[in-house]
């Protein structure tokens, strides 16, 4: 039912688009027909240009997301253990969190030189802070009653972490992961748009930017459509499933 409604709305959107195109209100170079865009997607998929760009962007995201999540974990755990460290992270995240990763680009080049590691660093920065902040608030939200239960049953430090703290903070952890995933895409696309020419291969950001250079409008649209499609797929196949399972357990309305 949910998918049917979504399908119908999707079809309606493309019909509206096609209608706008047929009215010829806009120049075809500004608004190509959806069919043209689909053709472009299929041909670029076949030529390998899109899959390679997609693979490259995903690779950058994973290469940054995994270490960022691990670092945030270490930070949050250390902060729980030592109050002073928590205060330090708190101050640091207040400073760094509002800072867009792309603003660091010139400085990062100055400090570390040119290379694809720049993109990884920018994504790392964009993911680390929101995930850390969510994780910290998740740990702090773990009820003292649950921790008392651990004390009562003489659990060790690591057992407390695995059996109480981690599952107790799971809702915040999942929310943090969702935000991080979105932030990572934003960061990687903008970094590639500025930076893509210098690396040995461009990602999806570069793909869109490159199409602009040649005034290949259907190409620009197809890049954006692919981005949307990935967003929907990941949300449906991963986050929504995890969330509904959690909501069932925690007695929340999904």
């Amino acid at each position: 039912m949910k998918y049917l409604a979504r399908f119908i709305w999707g079809v309606a959107f493309f019909l509206f688009w096609q209608g706008l195109y047929s009215l010829q209100l806009f120049h075809p170079l500004i608004l190509p027909s959806p069919l043209e865009v689909f053709e472009k997607i299929i041909s670029d998929m076949a030529s390998g240009e899109l899959p390679i760009s997609l693979y490259y962007s995903l690779y950058m995201i994973i290469a940054a997301l995994v270490p960022a999540v691990l670092t945030a974990f270490l930070m949050a755990v250390a902060g729980r253990r030592w109050n002073k460290i928590d205060q330090f992270w708190e101050a640091l995240s207040a400073l760094a969190h509002p800072l867009p990763g792309i603003a660091l680009l010139p400085l990062l080049i100055l400090w570390t030189g040119l290379g694809t590691h720049i993109i990884v660093l920018i994504v790392f920065h964009s993911v680390l802070w929101p995930f850390y902040i969510n994780l910290r608030s998740g740990f702090r939200g773990v009820s003292s009653l649950w921790l008392d239960l651990g004390r009562n049953n003489e659990l060790q430090g690591w057992e407390n972490f695995v059996y109480i703290l981690l599952p107790g903070a799971y809702p915040s952890l999942l929310a943090g992961l969702k935000i991080s995933w979105a932030r990572a895409w934003r960061a990687v696309i903008s970094a590639e748009m500025i930076f893509g020419t210098i690396g040995n291969a461009g990602g999806l950001g570069w793909y869109i930017f490159d199409k602009r250079t040649f005034m290949d409008t259907p190409g620009m649209y197809s890049g954006i459509l692919i981005l949307m499609l990935i967003g929907i797929l990941v949300d449906d196949l991963i986050f929504r499933k995890l969330e509904s399972r959690m909501n069932l357990r925690w007695g929340r309305i999904s």
Binding site: L149, N152, G168, R249, W250
Partner: peptide, 17 residues
């Protein structure tokens, strides 16, 4: 200690997951 089990007032003492 494990031999002395505490039962709290608050029903949220169960682990919701």
């Amino acid at each position: 200690f494990k031999m002395g089990q505490m039962i709290f007032q608050d029903p949220s003492q169960l682990l919701p997951w």
